[in-house]
Structures are given as C-alpha cells and as structure tokens.
Design a protein around this nucleic acid. Structure first.
Lengths: 338, 338
DNA sequence: CTGAAAGCGCTTACAG
DNA sequence: CTGAAAGCGCTTACAG
C-alpha cells in the first residue's frame, strides 16, 4: 500500500510550529503553551492526522505494545476482554500481543520467556484466573513490566487492578427480588475457589438483612458455576417441604441449569418460580425465558486496564471500580399469590 | 523497555556479509548464493535474531498490518475468529487492526474511511455476515486491498475465501444418527437467509437417501437459528402422531431449545429422544446432556485467512476448504426399542 | 515553552 | 549475486 499519508510534518506546517511541538502534544506532555496546543489540536483534527505506529515505536523508548495473557476456561469472558483491550489499543495506536499460558499439573504456570524478553511490552493486562497466580505476578514484577489485573481475588497493593463491586451487585439483584414481593429466596453459591463467590453471597445476605428477612440455611445451596451444578442445587431446593418462590443463582450458567430443572418439574418460570442469574453471558439472552441478571462491565474493565498502561501516572488510583448493570428480562416476576 | 536487542547489523557482522544480504534472506528472496544463505541462516539461529517489526514496517512497502472487520451477531463465533487471526499475526510479526461496522437501517453498511485510508492494510479478513455485503467487497476492491472472506454464502471468484463443507458435515452427523439405529429423524432448518442453512438441509437429505430412508415432510421444521425457534419446532415435532426418535437441529442454540422442550414434555434426552446440533458453541458443552454436534474449524479458518494475506501468491488456490469435526457427547443414543 | 540534529532498524532503488 | 546510500516518520537528548 502507498504511504501518502499525513505525517507529523504536515501537521507542524499546518499549525506553524515545529514537528517537535506536535510530538509533545501527541504525547500529552504538559510543557506546551495552551494556545499552541489548541492550534495543533485543530490541525490534527482538520487533517485527520494519525501517528504512524511503526515510526513511533522505532524511535521511542516505549514499544507501543501491550500484552494480554490468558488461561481461559471461559470463552465468552475472554472474548469481551479481548475486544475491550483491542479496541482501546487500535484507537490509541498501540498493538496487542496475546499469549496463552498452560497450567501445569501442579497448578502452577510456566512463563513464556519470549513474551517477556523479546516483545518489550509496555505493560500487560491479566484477567482471571491468571491474575491470582503468584508465579506470573512475580515474574512480571521481576522483569519490571507494569501490569493491571482484572477482577483479582486478592488485592495486594503492588499492582493496579480493575474490578466491579460484586457484593453491591448481588445486593441489588436480591433487593430486586424482594421488591417484587419474594420472601422465600433460594441462593446457589459459586465455586468456593473464586473470590467473587463469597462477595456475591455476602451481598445477598446483606440485602435480606436490610429488609428484615431471615436467612434460611436450607435455602443456601453450594454450586460450582456450572449448568449441571445449578440444575442439581435446584433439584434440592424444589424437594424442600417449603420451597423458595425465587432462586438467585450466582452465575448465568447455573441459572440456566436452574430453569431447566424447574421446567422438568412441570413448573413455569417465572409464573411459579422466579430465577435470576449473574454475569449476563450470551446464554442469558439466548434461552427462554431471558434471564434477569447482572451485566458485568467486562469490556470496560479491559479498556480501563489498557488505558492505565498507556498513560503511566503515579498519582493514579490503583483500585478502579466500574459499574455493573441490572438487566431485567423475563425470568423473574412477583410470586404466586396463593 | 530497553532496546538492547540483536539487529540485522549484528547478524551481518557475524556472517561476514552486508546488512543487505541478510535482509534478502529474511525476505525469502531467491537471489542469494546458497552458501551465503546458509552462513546467514546459521548466524540468525545462533544469535536468535528476530527482526524489528516497527523498523520493517516503517521502511518497507508492506505495513505488516492486517485488518479484521466485523458486525457482530455472535460473540462466540467472533471470538474464535479473533483468536485465530491474532495468534497467526503475533507469530509472524504482523499486527491486527479490528474494526466494527454498523448496519444501517436499510441493511447496508457504511465504510469507515479511516480503516481503509489510514491503516495501509496489507489485507483484510472478512467473516460473515460482512463477507456477503456488496458495499464492503466493492469498497475494498476499489481501494485495491487484498481480502479473504470466511464462510461466504456466495462464491464470486474475485476474492479468496476459506470455508468448511457444511453439506458434508450435515451428511455425516445424520449418518451418525442412522448408524445409531434411528429411522425417524426430525430436522430443524436454519435461518432461510443464511447460505449454510440450505447446505445443511441438503446434506441431511442426501444421508437419508443414501440409506434408503424416505424423507417425511412433517419431520422438517423451519427454524431461525434461535433457542426459541428450536424449542417451538420441537413442540410441533412432539405433537405428531408418530414423532421422531431423533432430532437434528442445524444449530446448537436450536438444539438446546429442543432439549428444553423434550424435558418439558417429561421425556429424557437421549433415552427417549436423541438431539444433535451444529456449531459446537460453548453452550453445547455447558448444558446437560452435552450436545453431540459438528465443530466448525472457525479458529483455523481465521488462521488460514491471515496466512493467505501474508504470503501473496497468484498460484494459490482461492477456495480453502477446512475440516470440521464430529463431536460426540451425551445427547444422542440408540432409539428406544419398543 | 520551543526547535534543530541525530538516529531508531530496517527496506527500497540503484550500482556494480 | 552483493553492497553503499538514502530515507521511512517518529522520539530522544540537547540547546536555547
């Protein structure tokens, strides 16, 4: 392809300054007079200037490469992360290098030296579950590569992280059920190894407390985030003498399993029993009835993470909490008035 | 990060030649004496030389950028495409620019000029449904940007494409059902607008013919690739006087809907009725019973597409057909012997 | 706050 | 078949 593109020289000429000053504006340096900056910004806008990534990378001390490592059990989740990071990178003239890590039999990860040595990454984004691997964190720290972790379980202060408030989200969706009129709410917990499971449980518990509704132990079932576990737990719930009128499964996969079990019992969702989930995976809107659930801001988390790495600033907050959203579909309704 | 890496100069010095000759070897040019080439190759190997992407891109006539455009109806599908393309690009020192297109109200797409003008792409990968948009194809053709289409419905010969054999795959999974002992096989067609729907139908029909099993019109139901449509079609199938013993839904989403309906009727999958799908989306292994289905080589298709763009060669076949795979899980079994 | 010079690591186009 | 020169579009380091 021909290279008849607008260069930094064109912008400089247009704005009546030197190339150097344009470079400073592009790099968000502060030592440029405000009026000059505005003139340059106008020229950039008018010419639709886009810096040449290759030249930037070649000349500069940064590589304009960001890394994304993953070991992903969950495709939908990774896809969101990927899209978020990639979009931000493309927008900002960065490149994304993705690299997968295999978990060894002993549960540890071996690190790809190539990634660390050759790529000269400006930073790396680490989604779960890798973000909680001590080897990975130490290796990157040793190599002096900045990192941002996404939704980590533990929050040590040596790296930045982006997350959402699982506790508050679980509180909100429980409250939603209560406001619908439900008092008998079954809860299916997530995998005990995941930090979020505990937070979601706590949020649900707090919502009950706040409304003065007692927590019944027989309404709490231990799930593992899978469809099957959601189906099994629901089986248990429906066999109770006084079964719940609503079920809050702490993942969509489990909620989908719950719905299938309710149907198998010849009952209707939401007419007989309401079911809500958590995550808003594609499945949530694919099945019928559509799942009322919490949408995690996964893509936004990746975007924020990438941005954090692009503009290093020691003043920046290390803890970035993003907003979730309650998605109301058809799987929850007021309880049967019997 | 510091740039203390091995450069082409180091290799040249090591091999006792000029930088230029090394460059020729790297670029796979043929005009280099065999002994010289070997000396250089040895030096490259010994020094672990990796060309600097940025320098290459800046100096050369190629950009080492590939584009991936999408309009995303299906996250799981796109995610696979993305992973395949990204892996290949990362491996080969290429960069990937992704860009989404919004469909206008009239069904047409407006093209992002920025993508075409600024990025200087060496080529673009076009997955469905964009690969069948005349505007996009014409725009890219006009801009003289090479492209590879993935699984297009129509196969005009002005661009290369990568696909799988939907007809043969449908034939194979139908045969699988027949070999299990099924003679009464219901079929749920895909969305009439998708080219693959027809191919899958034809494959199923052919398999029946090959085994001398008559095609019953009441066993054919028109679906739309959605969970809901799969559930509804199955409702119709189960209401027949002589219902099928197996159902082949031409997408996994529809197969999942089919299973839910079978369960709602108090029947078991696969003991009472077998159900098979097509696609192998994440849902297929999430639900219970796991879906027997056809795995499309989506990631491999994207890899092949990227590779095609990296090594232009007029001799190359334009039609790249990749292998699918029959994935056997728990949703199909021999029919009830009654 | 702004600019002139040098150079990042390659490939192109030309010369032999 | 091989090489010396020029330059891709930026940023760094230095000077004012």
């Amino acid at each position: 392809m021909k290279k008849d593109n607008i260069t930094i020289q064109d912008v400089a000429r247009h704005a009546g300054v030197s190339m150097m000053t344009v470079s400073r504006v592009m790099g968000k340096k502060t030592n440029v007079k405000e009026t000059t900056r505005r003139k340059i910004l106008a020229a950039i806008e008018q010419l639709q200037y886009q810096p040449n990534v290759a030249a930037r990378s070649l000349a500069g001390s940064r590589s304009y490469f960001l890394g994304l490592v993953y070991d992903n059990p969950n495709e939908a989740y990774l896809s969101q992360i990927l899209m978020g990071a990639l979009h931000k990178c493309t927008d900002r003239g960065y490149n994304l290098v993705i690299s997968s890590f295999e978990r060894a039999a002993d549960g540890s990860y071996k690190i790809d030296d190539a990634l660390i040595n050759r790529a000269k990454l400006d930073g790396v984004i680490i989604p779960p579950p890798l973000c909680d691997s001590p080897e990975i964190l130490r290796r990157l720290t040793d190599a002096d590569i900045p990192m941002v972790r996404i939704a980590p379980q533990t929050l040590p202060d040596y790296s930045a992280f982006v997350r959402m408030d699982d506790r508050r989200a679980a509180h909100e969706i429980t409250e939603f059920l209560i406001n619908l009129g439900h008092r008998k709410i079954g809860f299916i917990t997530g995998h005990p190894d995941h930090g979020a499971s505990k937070l979601r449980y706590e949020g649900m518990k707090k919502a009950l407390e706040d409304k003065g509704i007692p927590l019944r132990q027989d309404y709490i079932q231990q799930g593992y985030f899978s469809y099957k576990s959601g189906a099994d737990c629901t089986e248990n719930l429906l066999e109770l003498e006084d079964p719940p009128t609503a079920i809050f499964a702490s993942s969509d996969d489990m909620a989908a399993g719950a719905i299938s079990t309710v149907h198998r019992h010849g009952l209707s969702v939401p007419d007989d029993i309401s079911v809500v989930g958590f995550d808003d995976v594609p499945l949530a809107s694919a099945i019928w009835p559509g799942l009322t659930t919490i949408r995690q801001p996964i893509m936004a988390m990746a975007e924020r993470a990438a941005e954090f790495l692009m503009y290093p600033d020691p003043e920046k907050e290390k803890d970035n909490i993003l907003d979730y959203k309650l998605i109301i579909r058809e799987s929850a309704a007021p309880p049967h008035t019997s």
